[in-house]
Amino acid sequence: MPTRTVTIASSVGLHARPAALFVQAASATGLDVEIARPGDDPVDATSILGVMALGAKHGEEVVLSADGDGADEALDSLVELLSTDLDAE
């Protein structure tokens, strides 16, 4: 299963607006996308509460994984999203 490790760029962490944008993007892929802190159990990336409950802060790493057709492309776009300071826009 393709995975990616990415550092959270948003200054407020993966919370509020950044979390909402990420969950919307993950849902839009139509795939089963999961997100985890390295070494921890993954949570459903389309669940806003699950994503926020990770408590991933600015500068921390998370691991994304997805399965199915186009998983690599989908993960690349999600990585790009998380590498941007979503709260600054």
């Binding site: 509020a16 607006r17 979390a19 909402a20 969950v23 919307q24 949570v43 459903d44 389309t46 669940s47 806003i48 509460l49 699950g50």
Partner: peptide, 16 residues
């Protein structure tokens, strides 16, 4: 708009 939109996402949350 943004706050209400994010709150709607919570209402649709699969985990919840």
């Amino acid at each position: 708009k943004e706050i209400l939109g994010a709150t709607a996402l919570i209402a649709r949350d699969k985990g919840l």
